[in-house]
Amino acid sequence: MAAIFENGIDVSRYQGVVDWARVAASGQQFAIVRVGSTDGSGVYVDPYFKRNVEGAHAAGLKVGAYYYTYAKTEEAVIRELNKFLPALEGYQLEYPVFVDMEDSSFVSLSRKQVTDLTRLAMDILYQNGWYAGYYTYTFFATNYIDTEALKDYPLWIADYRGYVGYQGGYTMWQYSSSGQVSGIQGNVDMNRSYVDFLPFIKEGGFNGFPAPSGPVMMSLENQLLEVFSERCEYFNSPDVNDVVGYLPLGTYPAVALSEEEYGGFVWVTFRLGGAVWWTALLEDRCRLIADDSGTDCSECQAQLAEANARIEETRQLLNDALEALG
């Protein structure tokens, strides 16, 4: 099992008025707050949503959101989100907005239908600037959702047996529905997060955070970032002060290259651990090489040559500018 990043709870109107200062003092680090659901009167916003989000933030907790869906058609998905999206406006959330896909009524649909509806809801959330994921429990995930088709979305899995029976990857685990936490009367759901979502949320300008400025990037194909010095740092963003750590020696799939220097460096993005990171191309630490693993690489060699020419041109311009200043 992966290392626990943070411990937290999820709440709705059923927890009543929460004393968030006491929750924080008890050691909880995040809260996933229900934004709404549907009852006999239709789609509604949870009456405690605003109080819970603002109270949790004021107490220093990170916050995410979820909504319990009953939508069995595309039109119903849109109808639910037309109600929930305005309720989310104005907040900055450090955790995803999750689609709670678990209701027993969905067993009347095919696995593909349930998967497509879940994806549609998450895609609409993304299109509206929210970092989206989905929640369900082990049996539902195994039997009613094609989780492989949704592998690019964060999964929050529920399993109360002391372990997770679901065999695929997940980012959060709801391990109990009967937790006791200071500041909350009665039971509350207990969760563990294994991922720090905030860097990805900020990098994409999701969840109310401003879109980061940065260099204009050109996409790369069939190229690798080769790290040959232990001094090669990598970053959350194209900012040398936003350091993550040092990259192990080796190669990493390259994603994009800055078209020109930004902040004094030529930048490249690359994949590591399922996420995209940044590093500065420094000739004594790392470089781009062709990925010729079993493919015809004439095209990628040409692209690499073009990229290297851009890097060299940028370096020459910088040298000329420095000489002019000297």
Rank of each mutant, 00 (worst) to 15 (best):
2 A>V: 06
2 A>P: 15
3 A>G: 04
7 N>K: 08
10 D>F: 00
14 Y>P: 05
14 Y>C: 04
14 Y>M: 01
16 G>A: 06
18 V>G: 04
18 V>A: 03
19 D>S: 00
20 W>A: 09
22 R>E: 14
24 A>R: 10
25 A>W: 08
26 S>K: 09
30 F>A: 09
34 R>I: 11
34 R>W: 10
36 G>D: 07
36 G>P: 01
37 S>N: 14
39 D>A: 10
42 G>Y: 01
42 G>A: 02
42 G>L: 03
43 V>L: 01
44 Y>V: 11
46 D>N: 00
48 Y>I: 04
49 F>P: 07
54 E>W: 05
54 E>V: 04
56 A>S: 00
56 A>Q: 03
60 G>D: 06
63 V>W: 12
64 G>W: 00
65 A>Y: 00
73 T>Q: 05
79 R>A: 14
81 L>Q: 15
86 P>A: 00
94 E>D: 13
96 P>M: 00
98 F>R: 06
101 M>G: 09
104 S>P: 11
104 S>R: 12
105 S>Y: 03
107 V>H: 15
114 V>R: 15
116 D>K: 13
119 R>E: 02
120 L>T: 05
121 A>M: 09
122 M>T: 14
122 M>D: 13
124 I>V: 15
126 Y>F: 14
127 Q>H: 11
134 Y>V: 02
140 F>C: 04
140 F>N: 05
141 A>D: 03
146 D>K: 07
153 Y>S: 07
156 W>L: 08
157 I>N: 12
161 R>I: 05
162 G>T: 05
162 G>N: 01
164 V>E: 04
166 Y>R: 01
166 Y>M: 05
167 Q>S: 14
169 G>A: 15
171 T>H: 13
175 Y>R: 05
176 S>A: 13
176 S>F: 09
178 S>A: 14
180 Q>D: 01
189 D>K: 12
191 N>P: 07
192 R>Y: 13
193 S>R: 04
194 Y>M: 08
195 V>L: 07
195 V>P: 01
196 D>F: 02
197 F>L: 05
199 P>I: 13
202 K>M: 14
205 G>R: 08
206 F>P: 08
208 G>I: 06
212 P>Q: 09
216 V>S: 12
218 M>R: 15
218 M>H: 15
220 L>W: 08
220 L>T: 11
223 Q>D: 11
224 L>E: 02
226 E>N: 15
226 E>C: 10
227 V>I: 13
230 E>V: 03
231 R>G: 13
232 C>D: 10
232 C>E: 13
234 Y>H: 11
248 P>N: 11
254 A>R: 07
255 V>T: 05
255 V>A: 01
260 E>W: 07
265 F>G: 03
267 W>E: 12
268 V>I: 12
268 V>N: 02
270 F>Q: 11
270 F>L: 08
270 F>G: 08
271 R>C: 04
274 G>E: 13
276 V>T: 15
276 V>I: 15
277 W>E: 02
279 T>I: 01
280 A>V: 13
280 A>C: 14
281 L>C: 09
281 L>A: 12
282 L>Y: 10
286 C>E: 04
286 C>N: 15
287 R>L: 06
287 R>E: 00
288 L>K: 06
295 T>H: 03
295 T>F: 03
299 E>P: 08
300 C>A: 14
300 C>I: 11
303 Q>P: 06
304 L>D: 00
308 N>D: 10
310 R>G: 12
314 T>K: 02
315 R>Q: 08
317 L>F: 07
318 L>W: 10
319 N>K: 04
320 D>P: 08
321 A>K: 04
322 L>D: 01
324 A>R: 00
